[in-house]
């Protein structure tokens, strides 16, 4: 990956005071600052404008900027809170905060619901679930017959759709997660607890900036 020409912390678009970000997220101030190192790395990997574009997000996830993936698209869209096609620093830190091991479980459950509510109707519909299963199978080069896919989706709906109206609402989703807590396992990134170890270069680069 490339490297930004700009080293000034304040030039990052959407840059926010680490104290404020730390007060609104499960991160400490030094973790927020360490995340800035990661953000700078990601946000200048293709387009050096200090913002994370979808291609840069894909590059970071898959080592391939052109790789299309339904789930990566959804994550990016949820990170892009302002819906302007890019993820700025504040959006990045706040969104990643949901994945922190100490983040509120309710927030994780809600985030996962929004992620799977592909068309943002307020419900996870049967068609959406099937679309996600097919996308996962395609991504994994797994071939299952349509009958088997239908069986998987049916079984999940029998488990989740308590009201039997053919769609899963937030309340039903919460009940499902209560029954199967592993469903939100991917909403926690253990790495986020050791972020300052992962990006110790922050300490060095901030000292350099002070001298400049």
């Amino acid at each position: 990956m490339g490297c930004c020409s700009s080293k000034k912390v304040g030039r990052t678009p959407g840059y926010e005071d680490p104290t404020i970000l730390a007060s609104e997220t499960p991160f400490t101030e030094s973790e927020v600052e360490a995340l800035h190192e990661l953000y700078k790395k990601l946000s200048c990997s293709i387009i050096d404008d200090g913002l994370i574009h979808k291609e840069e997000f894909q590059l970071a996830l898959f080592r391939n900027s052109k790789r299309k993936n339904l789930f990566a698209d959804r994550i990016f869209d949820l990170f892009d809170v302002k819906r302007n096609g890019v993820v700025d620093y504040g959006e990045f830190v706040r969104s990643l905060g949901v994945f922190h091991p100490n983040a509120n479980v309710e927030d994780k459950i809600n985030f996962a619901f929004r992620l799977y509510d592909l068309r943002q109707t307020g419900y996870i519909e049967r068609e959406e679930l099937k679309e996600m299963v097919l996308a996962l199978l395609h991504e994994s080069d797994l071939i299952l017959s349509d009958d088997v896919v239908e069986t998987i989706v049916d079984k999940t709906f029998r488990d989740a759709d308590l009201k039997g109206d053919g769609k899963i609402d937030q309340e039903e989703w919460k009940e499902l997660v209560k029954k199967h807590p592993t469903l939100i396992k991917n909403m926690t990134l253990p790495y986020l607890k050791d972020i300052t170890l992962a990006f110790p270069s922050f300490v060095l680069s901030s000292e350099v900036e002070d001298i400049e």
């Binding site: 990661l38 990566a72 994550i75 679930l129 996600m132 996962l136 991504e139 797994l142 999940t156 199967h180």
Partner: peptide
């Protein structure tokens, strides 16, 4: 577990596109 016996959401959660841990790999 066989995909057939898995909850669809459990299956989906294994997607690489949902594995944000990759962002932290150097």
């Amino acid at each position: 577990a066989s995909p057939v016996t898995m909850n669809a959401f459990e299956l989906i959660s294994t997607s690489q596109g949902l594995n944000l841990g990759t962002l932290f790999e150097k």
